[in-house]
């Protein structure tokens, strides 16, 4: 009996985005990281090309989030109190491909640190590690509008990936991205229509969407993960079908979201029968990351060394394909 060939043929390729600039390219990075370029859905290596496997960005936060459990802090080590030392450890020991710096310090609801403080942190980080850098604002758009331009200037020429650009602040982000030669993260609140809208708006503001990575606002496992999963998937399918506003690589901010949910941070006396927290937390993070790899994430940010290791192994196993 003849077996029917069920391979899908897509007409479009997802954009490739390169983060980081070497000395020859005007920056100081030892290497760059390229994502995207797929001509098929995630992991279907038999069906099309996946030239760039997903990458893991080690999450570094300038101010240790107050909710983070001791088990996570212990796993990262005392370096957690110094973004530069933490970043070095994430690259050298944990095996992160690049660093994602979350600037929590400027948050008006937290320490409300000034913009120049954030810029200094970024400069120090760029000196401490030679991998490409992702810089994520605190999320308060008014404050981000003040902080991100200074940060962007401090990292000028390093071709960082900066975000979030949303419907409210896309003009500022487009301007700094163009002026200081950075890539941008376009972020939509779990809404595919707004995700597309932001890309159109960024393009309209004169920023090339070939330099944009999309973020659908990540949800941890158990907290709307399935909604975000379907958006990742629909975005990718639309992109492969030829919608140029959807043919963009995607980032999942897994670490940041995971270490907020009770399954990852509550002790076993609060969640009896859920196994030890020091084991459960990284598994929750790695499992969420595994889900997003299947959904179509090109970049995953992760905090726990164990989940970084598991996720890197997952990627290398899955990308072996059918050989």
């Amino acid at each position: 009996m003849q077996i029917v060939d069920v391979k899908e043929k897509w007409i479009n390729r997802i954009n490739t985005v390169t983060i980081g600039a070497t000395r020859a390219e005007g920056g100081t990075r030892a290497r760059t990281v390229t994502v995207g370029g797929e001509t098929t859905l995630p992991l279907l290596t038999f069906e099309g090309e996946i030239p760039n496997p997903p990458v893991v960005a080690g999450l570094v936060v300038d101010v240790v989030p107050p909710d983070w459990p001791d088990a996570l802090k212990k796993a990262i080590g005392p370096e957690i109190n110094s973004p530069t030392e933490w970043a070095q450890k994430a690259v050298k020991q944990f095996g992160a491909d690049l660093i994602c710096l979350k600037l929590l310090g400027p948050d008006p609801l937290g320490k409300n640190l000034p913009a120049d403080h954030a810029a200094k942190t970024v400069k120090a980080l760029l000196e401490a590690v030679d991998v490409p850098l992702i810089i994520w604002g605190c999320g308060d758009l008014e404050k981000d509008n003040v902080v991100l331009p200074e940060v962007s200037q401090a990292a000028r020429g390093e071709n960082c990936l900066i975000g979030p650009a949303t419907e409210k602040n896309y003009r500022t982000l487009a301007a700094i991205g163009k002026a200081d030669k950075h890539k941008l993260i376009g972020e939509a609140p779990v809404d595919i229509n707004i995700a597309k809208q932001i890309n159109i708006l960024l393009q309209d503001a004169g920023f090339d969407i070939k330099d944009v990575v999309m973020c659908q606002v990540t949800a941890a496992l158990g907290y709307g993960f399935d909604y975000v999963y379907t958006i990742f998937e629909r975005v990718r399918i639309a992109g492969l079908k030829g919608d140029k506003h959807m043919a963009l690589p995607q980032i999942a901010n897994v670490g940041w979201e995971t270490w907020k949910v009770k399954e990852a941070i509550a002790d076993e006396d609060v969640l009896p029968g859920w196994d030890r927290l020091d084991k459960r937390g990284p598994r929750w993070e790695a499992t969420t990351a595994g889900g997003y790899i299947q959904a179509g994430a090109d970049i995953l940010t992760l905090a726990h060394p164990e989940s970084i290791a598991i996720t890197k192994q997952t990627i290398s196993e899955l990308m072996k394909g059918d050989q």
Binding site: N193, K196, Q197, N199, I200, D204, R234, A238, K244
Partner: peptide
Amino acid sequence: REIYADAYLQKS
């Protein structure tokens, strides 16, 4: 056939 966005008529 296409995903809706408020700015879908915008030239690009």
